[in-house]
Amino acid sequence: MMVFAQLLPIAAEEAENGEGGLEILLPATSELIAGIIAFAIVFFFVWRFAVPAINRALEQRQAAISGQIEDAEKAKAQAESLLADYKAQLADARNEANRIVEEARQDAEQVRADVIAKADEEATQIRSKAREDATAEKERALADARSQVGDISVDLAGRIVGESLDPQAHRELIDRYLADLERL
């Protein structure tokens, strides 16, 4: 600032002495013409070439950005539909599993009922067979006993009575005895 203060009187002195000051303040004709031509060229270039290129670059970038947004939205929609698919598939699978488990449970129930019924039937069969066997055995034992009792009775009676008993009486006795046995 000191320098500037020192400079001011110098400039003022120069302005008084000659044309210095005015020459600085007023536009020089040659420079004015040069400036007009140079600026006209700059403006023409900017107007015809630069601004269209600038707008193109701007549009390109906007197009690129909106394209990217579009792509992202597409990918998002795709992902969402995939997710929905997977969810539906998962739900299907769960239903299927439930159905299979239910079926298996019903099958098992059926098998259990069948087994029980069959076992019951077998038990009944075995019991009736056993009863039949026992009856037959009893019949057989009775028949055996009856024939043995006859033999023993004849033998015993022969010993007790000896020869005194006539054959006619003997036979009648036996028959009667047997008839009595039959009545048992």
């Binding site: 140079a38 600026f39 270039f45 900017v46 630069a50 290129a53 600038i54 670059a57």
Partner: peptide
């Protein structure tokens, strides 16, 4: 003055060619 005009044009030219 001419050089300034040339520099402005060059800046824009190299800034916006081959985008």
């Amino acid at each position: 003055i001419g050089l300034a005009a040339l520099i402005v044009i060059a800046l824009l030219y190299f800034g916006y060619r081959n985008r």
